[in-house]
Amino acid sequence: MSKPVQHSPSSGPLISLKYLAISIALSVISMGIVIYLTYTPGVLEHLKPKRLPGLGIAIAVTLLKVYFSAAKIRYLADKVIGKMAAVRIALTWDFASAVTPSTIGGAPVATFAMTREGIQLGQSSAIMLYSVLLDQFWYALAVPILLISGIYFQVLPEEIGLVGNVSMALIYTALLLYGALLAYGLLINPAAIKKVIRVIFKLPFLRKYADKVNEEADNLESYSKLLKKKPYTFVLKAFYLSTMTWLCKVALPVIVVLSLLPADEILLVLRSLAMNLAFLVIPTPGGSGGVEGLFAIFLGPLIDRKAFIGLAVFTWRIITYYSSIGLGIFAMIWYVNDSVEQRLSETDEPIPVEELEDHG
């Protein structure tokens, strides 16, 4: 196993505290607004104790999501890392995604985590791309489901109006087109990705990084070719693990709502699916400030008691978003401690006998 790639201090912090603060602040503010607009005194008296164990199921599904995400990473890495290492990577990836803008995503931090676990940078980049491709396959499956279901059910809430419907149509189209391009670049013509990278890093302000990036692009192309040679069973199992991760994401809002009060289960699932696709285009760190509003817009009309909308949003974000931050911080601390220990071990070398004699 190759030596892990070190993160250079000069390259800047892996996680921006500014983005973390902005993400949490936006989440708190947006939840506060939803609760303020929907809360009525005495709402907690209407909670049914027999439904509350469903929140335990929601927590279990959150852990299942981490399990399937870790299993996918380990499977794509040909199991060169252990199960706990895969879990640490998955937690770090979730944490980074929760506190960085969607335009940046958690990929850079997840790549760092993989290299700390001993996966080569080129291979970790290929794993990232392949994971994204598997997500695109899921979107390609989800979009037709939503379109066909839209014939029989009110999948998109009336509250979003014409602008919302057009926006969702654009999201569906963009996801399908991006998935097709990514599949072509990664599975059919990986050399195309390398050509694009070479062109980009010919720019004057990026030229100094060209040699290193081109070397990693070669590794990426090589690993992409290895993935192309994998049997269909490999692709199917990887897609299964990716699908299970997404099903957990879709199930969580549904379980939270049903843990508070009855609702139309079919519509809850379909709207949760559509809502999760809409989350992808929110530019704020972790989608904060937007996902809370979308939850209220998509699922709020299905909740009989308006006062429960804010409670549902709050509970859902605690179980998903804030748990990702908490668990991710523990994973990041492990990597920081590991880096410190490695640097100490590298600097704590015994003094040669010759030097001791000279000083004697």
Rank of each mutant, 00 (worst) to 15 (best):
Y36F: 14
V87S: 03
A60H: 01
E355M: 14
L299Y: 03
I24A: 06
P352A: 10
A140M: 14
V87R: 15
G32D: 09
P101V: 00
K50P: 02
K79Y: 03
I171P: 11
L327R: 04
E158V: 11
W316V: 04
T173K: 09
G105L: 03
L63H: 08
L299F: 08
G290S: 01
K237D: 01
G300W: 02
A71M: 13
Q342C: 00
V109Y: 07
F153I: 00
K3F: 06
Y321G: 05
F279R: 13
L121M: 05
Y335G: 05
S324W: 12
V281W: 00
I200G: 05
A96F: 06
I104V: 15
W316H: 13
Y322G: 12
I81M: 06
V281H: 02
I73C: 04
G328Q: 07
L203V: 08
I145E: 01
T40G: 10
T320K: 04
G289F: 05
G289L: 05
P49G: 07
Y75W: 06
I297F: 06
E45A: 13
I188Q: 12
V256Y: 02
N276I: 08
H359L: 15
M168S: 07
E349I: 13
Y19D: 12
L129K: 00
S324A: 14
D211V: 06
E357C: 05
L146V: 12
Q136P: 01
G326H: 03
S224W: 05
F137I: 06
L26W: 04
N219C: 06
V34S: 11
P350S: 07
S242K: 02
Y335L: 10
P190N: 05
F201R: 00
L236Q: 12
L252E: 10
L146W: 13
P41M: 10
Y335N: 02
L63T: 09
D211G: 04
I29N: 02
I145R: 01
Y240R: 01
G290A: 03
L17H: 09
L261Y: 08
E265G: 07
L267Q: 13
K50L: 15
H7M: 02
T284Y: 01
L64V: 05
I33D: 04
T320N: 12
I318V: 13
K65D: 14
S69K: 08
L258N: 00
F239T: 10
E265R: 14
A86W: 07
I148S: 11
V235H: 12
L156Q: 04
P49Y: 11
A278Q: 01
L170F: 15
G360L: 14
T315Y: 06
L186V: 08
L356Y: 08
T103P: 00
F137K: 01
L236F: 15
G56L: 15
L277K: 07
I282H: 04
F279C: 01
D338P: 03
L280W: 00
R317W: 04
I255V: 08
S27K: 09
A274S: 10
L52I: 10
Y240M: 07
K50W: 15
A210G: 01
F112L: 00
V109H: 03
L14T: 04
A296F: 06
T233L: 13
L247Q: 05
I29V: 13
L267F: 02
C248Y: 04
K50H: 12
I171T: 14
S149Y: 06
V353D: 13
K208P: 04
